[in-house]
Design a protein around this nucleic acid. Sequence first.
DNA 1: CCAACATTTGACCGATCAGTCAACTCGGAA
DNA 2: TTCCGAGTTGACTGATCGGTCAAATGTTGG
Lengths: 198, 198
Amino acid sequence: MAKDTRERIVATARDLVHGASLAQVSTEDVCRAAGVHKGSLYHFFPSKEALGMAVLERNWALMSAVLDEAFVDDVPPLARIDRFVDSFAERLSLMRDAMGGVTPGCPLGGLVGELAGHGDEPRTHAARILHAWTQYFTDAISEAKGRGDVDPAVETGPAATRLLAHLQGLALLAKAYDDPRLVLQAKKDFRQLLAAPR
Amino acid sequence: MAKDTRERIVATARDLVHGASLAQVSTEDVCRAAGVHKGSLYHFFPSKEALGMAVLERNWALMSAVLDEAFVDDVPPLARIDRFVDSFAERLSLMRDAMGGVTPGCPLGGLVGELAGHGDEPRTHAARILHAWTQYFTDAISEAKGRGDVDPAVETGPAATRLLAHLQGLALLAKAYDDPRLVLQAKKDFRQLLAAPR
DNA sequence: CCAACATTTGACCGATCAGTCAACTCGGAA
DNA sequence: TTCCGAGTTGACTGATCGGTCAAATGTTGG
């Protein structure tokens, strides 16, 4: 029952936070929903912010699982990215239905934006996660260049950053316009962002 | 002293919120910083959320001023967009210096993301503002097509949305990586996002 | 069976929060 | 001069917040 409780707290917090923000969810909310008492929460986490970081970590674990599922070797590298975008959009739609027809933003992007304003340490942690995410794109683009699917003149690193930024922006617009399908545009947009500079 | 007080409250709230989020700033913080008492604040605003909406409106007023300054007729349409990106990035840098070396996100994007989770009415309001922003890009792209600077095969509306999404994403990354210069990339990226689809 | 440790309990705290209220000030219209 | 209502004051509330704590309860290894 040890690790189990900690896991349940993080999972519950994740669910609650995802529909809003960390600030809008109180530790009492989390405890009530997780069937746990305050003391237990603070036995595992030194502060609410630490819980927020754990939620961020968990969101990244889930996101990287989606990435791993999409980025399989027997699919051309650029198609892997498309597969991921499809999964990402579908997850957004499912979450929208799970909540009352409210489109959530990117579970990582939202928390990153919130925690980045909480001092330097949470910010660098968030930055590391974004960088890890970018790495998936970096690898795929690099491999695509080897196959001739992407022009060698394209700088791999900056291109990968472009893709992530674009996806995050689309997720924000999807939330504001309450339309998860907006992120599907990423597939077409990515192709242009990966074109050789002129 | 009537409208003046209201203005001062909104302006002060804007400054405080911009460095963090609406949730992290209390009404008491705003009152103290604005030299105003609680009752005055609630004389002008029925709730804290209403104050948030007023801040959003003010941020849009400031942003549209920057847009108007960049989008002048005697400059080619695509160059107007570049001018705006430069101004936007410069403002981000200035704000970073004004705070203690902490890069803020897009003042509109951040609030939009936060208020979009506060029910449907704040969300649609935020969406309207984003749409108004997009309109600047729409007009410029449309004019650029007339001059032959953009391929007629490009759909104007979706292209403008792409640009806004990309800029918002870059602003988020700039905040996470604490580097306002990241948004300058938008100028090159926009050119690719405006290329004809293949 | 015991001792050491991890976990859980639930009451509790001081601070802070958004929001209220009755009383006061003051400028302008009648 | 009187009156009225917009603006202002500042104390106040009830709720909620993040966080603490000492005691109770498991759990594990010797």
